[in-house]
């Protein structure tokens, strides 16, 4: 079932086993929101595609600061929480 939902792609790394929708905001949700805004599933996929290049984190809280999209453009993120309350349940948390 999982393989039908998430077909294995060698380019984008290992395929996830399941996905859940968060109910409340956490740092994990913030992380997923930032990656998904840039067009990636999560850090695993980003590392598989971009090999970790172009990624930057804020030193004081570890939030994502900079990501490179698949088309080569850069997205920059704020120091503080960016994920609005209405977007929380639209984020996807993948389990491998």
């Amino acid at each position: 079932m999982a393989s039908r939902l998430f077909p294995a792609k060698t380019q984008s790394g290992p395929s996830p086993k399941s996905m859940t929708r968060p109910k409340v905001w956490t740092e994990e949700v913030e992380e997923a929101y930032r990656f998904q805004l840039a067009g990636y599933r999560d850090e695993t996929e980003y590392n598989a595609i971009k090999l970790g290049q172009g990624m930057d984190r804020w030193p004081h809280n570890g939030f994502i600061k900079k990501l490179q999209r698949k088309d080569g453009c850069f997205y920059y993120y704020d120091k503080t929480r960016e994920c609005p309350e209405k977007e929380v349940n639209k984020c996807k948390i993948y389990v491998y």
């Binding site: 088309d71 453009c73 850069f74 920059y76």
Partner: peptide
């Protein structure tokens, strides 16, 4: 609500 920068800021 974001700008995609072609060059690093």
């Amino acid at each position: 609500n974001k700008i995609a920068w072609k060059v690093e800021i």
